[in-house]
Every structure is written in C-alpha cells, then in structure tokens.
Amino acid sequence: MNNDLEPTELLNFNHSSIQDLIRRRQWASLPVKEQILHVYNYVRDEIEFGYNRRDDIPASEVLQDGYGQCNTKGILFMALLRALGIPCRIHGFTIDKQLQKGAMTGWYYHLSPKEIIHSWIEVLYNDKWLNIEGFIVDLPYLTKLQQKFNECTGSFCGYGVATDDFQNPAIFWDENDTYVQKEGIVQDFGTFDHPDQFFTLHPQKLSPIKRRIFSCLVRHLMNRNVRRIRKG
C-alpha cells in the first residue's frame, strides 16, 4: 500500500505550492469522497486543457503552468491525492494520434508518431480501483467543442476527445469511473506505482530533434488552437 502513497520526483506533493493549495482549499478536513471530488473538479476545470513542455514534469510545475494534458494533469491529480493520503496509481496506454487532430494540425500532425503515450489514474476508493480519465479537458473547452460540433450526438474523436457519447461524456465523478479519451486507446501497458517509472519505460516516440521542436514550437501552436476553441 505504501507504494500507492509515497512521493516521487514527479509526485512532489511536499512542495510548498501544493501544500499551500491544499491548505487554502481546506481539502484535508473533508470526507474522502469530497476530497476526491474537489481535487478531481479542480484538476479538470481549474487546470485548463493544454500542452506542457513534456510529459514527465513534476506536479508543482503542472500547477505553476496552470494547464496540462492527460499525462501531466494525471501527475498533478496523483500528487494531490497522495498528499491527502488517498492511494492511487497510473495506468499507461497509447492512443491513436487522430484523437489530437484539430488541436494538432498541418505539418506537425503529419510528423507526429501514429501512437501517442497516454495514461489515466486509478484511485482506490471503498476497496475498489476506479479509472479516472475524465479530468483531461476542462468544461469550458468541452462545452465550446460540443457547440462547434453540435450535430454530433454519438462517437467523436479529435481535439483531445475520444468518446462514444460526445454530448454526454462520462466526465462527472460520483464514485464512478470517468472517461474522455478512452475510445482512442490502442495499446495497454498496465498499471505502475508511479509516473516516474511509467515514463522512463514508455517515453513518447520522438527523436531528440522532434522532442525539442515540440517543446519550443509545436506545443505553443497546439495551445493556440485549444485557446481558439475555448474562446468560441
């Protein structure tokens, strides 16, 4: 059980910014269900959907950025849960890059790998592991995306979303699994105690040059596309 609670280099929940957030929100005084719900809603909506410099950055950096995607938001979510004594682990996958089409366009979409490293977080609650993925896209962004494609009432894949019920995806947590990219999954790598281990074994399949181009240029173009959707 200790493996599901301990800090790591990426899950640096003893960092002052993370501890200050927990104190300000008074999450430690809440029942466990409310702790999970409040942390979940915070990561989903107050950490906007966006692309950080890389996947394996510490939780404190995700918090400072104020935005993230599946892997980086997951790191922050795990760190906050473990800071509150709630066991959690990471489940690793790849997703088809089609899921990113729209957020990723043009030449950089064509140059990106066919499969992209993805993860969700599993939370131990009432002696059951719950799959938590629905925090990836914030509600303002998702709402604008639904309005943009309001004719779509079934499956949707693109712009950071892959769901079989686009107008009503399972993104609200009430002791349940949540999903927003699950339908784009290709490979399943299983569970890991912490993200440090997962990203060491399964980094994004980018050459050093492509990795630098992504960090310095591509992610900023993707974030610009995401902001345009969010603003409507």
Rank of each mutant, 00 (worst) to 15 (best):
D65W: 03
Y67D: 04
G232F: 09
L111P: 08
S29L: 08
Q181E: 11
I229N: 03
P58T: 00
K128P: 00
E183W: 08
P7T: 05
I116D: 10
C216N: 10
D56W: 06
H38Q: 15
C70V: 00
T163V: 11
D127H: 08
P203C: 01
Y179F: 15
N2M: 09
E151V: 04
A59P: 14
S16Q: 14
M1A: 14
G160Q: 10
H15S: 09
F199I: 00
Q146T: 07
P113Y: 03
D65T: 03
K182F: 07
E46M: 12
N223Y: 02
I47V: 15
E61I: 07
C70M: 01
T105A: 01
N2Q: 13
D165W: 12
V39R: 08
D56H: 08
I116W: 13
N168V: 05
C70G: 04
V123W: 04
C157K: 11
V180W: 04
L21R: 09
E175H: 13
D55C: 06
G154C: 09
N126D: 09
N2D: 14
V218Q: 04
H220M: 05
P87W: 02
V62G: 06
I22E: 05
W27L: 15
C88Q: 01
L76S: 05
A162N: 07
L206R: 15
D96N: 14
L11M: 07
Q197C: 11
R219S: 02
E46D: 15
T200G: 06
Q204F: 04
R23D: 12
A28H: 15
D45K: 13
M104H: 10
R82A: 01
K101F: 04
Q69D: 14
L21V: 13
P7Q: 07
Q69L: 04
L142E: 11
Y159T: 00
L37E: 13
L201N: 14
G232V: 00
